[in-house]
């Protein structure tokens, strides 16, 4: 242990030799793993194909340039759809995430044995499935189109927003809640006066951040038929219309940058 007597003098060491040995062994295993992985990657790569990568990149960029600007006329509608999928999906997800998060947080859950595990299952299963997979499932259930996209985005957002929100609820200052309880307020009033003001900044930040992510995610949902600009991307790629692909990528880039700018502005206002 840290304190020991050596030749009558008391001395202090940060760790004893057993712990030190375990830490060195951990490093050894880690480094060996890196070497093993590198070996396996290298064995499975066809270096002949990788060798002309710069040439291929040059050719692709040449085909992409200049972007076919006339194609933009056909992009406005899917772009608008994409924004709607992201926004409505986030909204729906957040609305469902709030009660789930308060059921999952240790300090607000109605029952630790029954309700909390259930809420946790909802949060984990929502997060463990990618939006694209949700979209594939939903296209088969509700049919192709925007609705499938909205629900897919919402389902994925519940887990993300819910997890971060319940962590925020667990980190609140307990004494403020105590003080509101001490006035004789009912549980719902304690929530709205003692907890809501404390989690508001986190809530706004999390929702905006998710909206931001969802705009990026919704651009590929069209790939599986769930509406939005992804449909154009997939059809342009399949006919090798590289100049259209580049235009789509630019349009997506501009949208994402704009959404980041908006969310940064709104967040700084709210907090």
């Amino acid at each position: 242990m840290p304190l020991m007597k050596r030749n009558g003098a008391v001395c202090w060491v940060p760790r004893d030799s057993k712990k030190q040995l375990v830490i060195w062994f951990g490093w050894f295993i880690g480094i060996m793993l890196v070497f093993l992985c590198w070996q396996s990657i290298s064995a499975k790569t066809m270096w002949v194909f990788a060798a002309d990568a710069p040439e291929q990149l040059r050719l692709m960029l040449m085909r992409m340039f200049p972007p076919k600007l006339e194609y933009m006329d056909k992009l406005w509608k899917p772009l608008w759809d994409t924004l709607n999928i992201a926004t409505l999906g986030t909204l729906l997800g957040v609305i469902i995430a709030v009660p789930v998060a308060s059921a999952a947080a240790l300090n607000t859950t109605p029952s630790k044995r029954l309700v909390r595990p259930l809420a946790m299952v909802i949060l984990v299963s929502s997060r463990s499935v990618n939006s694209l997979i949700w979209a594939i499932l939903l296209v088969t259930i509700v049919g192709p189109g925007i609705l499938a996209g909205i629900i897919a985005i919402a389902l994925r957002s519940i887990g993300f927003v819910g997890k971060l929100l319940y962590e925020a609820i667990e980190e609140i200052d307990k004494t403020q809640v105590e003080a509101v309880t001490a006035t004789g307020a009912a549980p719902a009033q304690v929530f709205s006066y003692g907890i809501v003001p404390q989690i508001m900044p986190a809530f706004a930040g999390i929702s905006l951040y998710r909206w931001d992510i969802n705009i990026r995610e919704s651009t590929i949902l069209g790939y599986v038929g769930a509406g939005g600009i992804g449909l154009n991307l997939s059809s342009s790629l399949s006919i090798l219309a590289w100049s259209q692909v580049s235009l789509i990528l630019i349009a997506v880039l501009i949208t994402v940058v704009a959404s980041e700018w908006i969310s940064a502005r709104v967040r700084s206002r709210l907090i």
Partner: peptide
């Protein structure tokens, strides 16, 4: 409880209200 007032050590005000 509403007939018992309480004053706290660290004030326990709801900071953002």
């Amino acid at each position: 409880r509403r007939k018992i007032g309480m004053i706290f050590q660290e004030y326990a005000l709801v900071e953002r209200l």
